[in-house]
Write a protein that binds this DNA or RNA. Structure first.
Lengths: 247, 247
DNA sequence: TTTTGTGGTTGACGTGGATCAACGAGGCCC
DNA sequence: GGGCCTCGTTGATCCACGTCAACCACAAAA
């Protein structure tokens, strides 16, 4: 671990994250363009296929490499002592996974494929060298580091004050944004995770997630058919985010 | 900012924080002994007095120094765009304040004195040099850095699932622990913050905090008289923490 | 074909905590 | 002293979400 904590973080991005305080800011997509992925792939050349429901890595594994997702998607979770599973994030095609161990030698989460997937393996030892060659990679790091900062007690608590529909709206907008980053339509996509996984991620029960989806549908904000989502009104969803408690 | 992210963090402490997931772990006290403070004071010599309700620093201020609290106590908060104030932490005599900007050049919180206080000013430029001389200081850093790691999405969400009484119990135990670290009785102390500030910190309303105190009193766990707290049963409070949702 | 299992939707109900409101105690200033 | 302000306590009410349960769609297996 030779990284310095000297990553320049703009005050603007920090303030945006701190004051807006919605999930969207907390799950900054750190996606790479197809070109960047290909360039990485070319430089490294080591690929790995992971079948649906199989682990890419486990909590406690030594932190030796990061992975650029070439195809498929993953979830990261922690297993709690009482047996519950807490989903900590979703990673999509074109994004980088494995950075959760950025400050320690060991992974702190399990990473599990949501569908058959393929990653490009970037050994940690090669990272610094690669950072110089691949401009995008350095950029990803900045984003991830700045995400670290946002993880503040205050933000935690504000999350707690978000209603179910606010959380789901933030989640959908975040997903939409991340699909867009990959050149897909922002309006229509397939979720690869179950309602239960979304719920675990958002701190809600699966029924609550389902109901929120139904309400969005009633209100004409999205068209939902199981995992297939079509967003009908982005402004409508955004409006939900700024719904302030009376205070 | 020359710090490296190479701070050695024990897997044990990480696991403890991740799996136990209670507020106590999230607000690790990073207190120093009186000797350590005195030693620092001697080495640096710059003191500053802050009157009650006055700022030690504000969000956006350049991050130039950290402060060892010689007397008094502080809260740190962020002001949200809608005018609400979110308390992000409390700092007591013997603890270090100013590290919230550890990864950036600017403070991200306001620091406000809860009572007339005095701090020992440690310019950031002197920090590295001092770290070599004052063993305790390095130790504080490790703790603070490891606290950073705990700020994980998963932990956030778990916090959201804690009941009001769990949160308050965690808070009281944490306070007790921090008082003990300073040589005071763990069982009896004065809180310097209002119910509203506690509530903001814990993500609860002041009435809920008050009611939780009352219930603790009824149940013989603590004796409460306004800000004066006497803890009658530490095991009783701890039992509340492990209260699991049915799941 | 039936059976079994997984994932999604919807309804009924209970409850924790937010909200609104009243009231009491102590500190401060005129 | 009386008025004002802040802080704490307590009661009544409301509502969002968790919980329990029924039911459906779909897929894989027998």
């Amino acid at each position: 671990m030779q990284m310095k904590a000297t990553v320049p973080v703009s005050m603007a991005s920090l303030k945006a994250a701190c004051s807006q305080c919605n999930l969207q800011e907390l799950c900054l997509p750190f996606g790479m363009s197809e070109n960047e992925i290909d360039r990485l792939d070319e430089l490294v050349g080591a690929r790995r296929k992971i079948k649906r429901q199989h682990h890419l890595y486990r909590a406690g594994d030594l932190f030796e490499a990061i992975y650029a997702i070439r195809a498929g998607s993953f979830k990261t979770d922690v297993l709690l002592e009482d047996g519950r599973e807490q989903v900590t994030g979703f990673q999509m095609t074109g994004e980088i996974i494995g950075l959760d161990g950025i400050s320690t030698e060991f992974h702190t989460c399990n990473a599990i494929a949501l569908e058959d997937s393929e990653v490009c393996v970037i050994p940690y030892a090669k990272l610094e060298e690669l950072s110089r060659e691949v401009e995008g990679l350095q950029h990803q790091f900045h984003k991830v580091m700045s995400r670290e900062i946002v993880r503040d007690h205050g933000v935690m608590m504000l999350l707690g004050s978000m209603r179910a529909e606010e959380r789901l709206a933030a989640f959908l907008l975040n997903m939409s944004q991340r699909f867009t980053a990959r050149g897909f339509s922002a309006a229509e996509f397939h979720l690869r995770m179950t309602r239960e996984e979304i719920g675990s991620y958002l701190g809600l029960k699966l029924e609550t997630v389902s109901r929120a989806f139904s309400r969005f549908q009633e209100d004409g904000l999205v068209a939902v058919q199981q995992k297939h989502i079509r967003i009908l009104s982005i402004p409508g969803l955004k409006k939900l985010l700024h719904h302030q408690p009376a205070g």
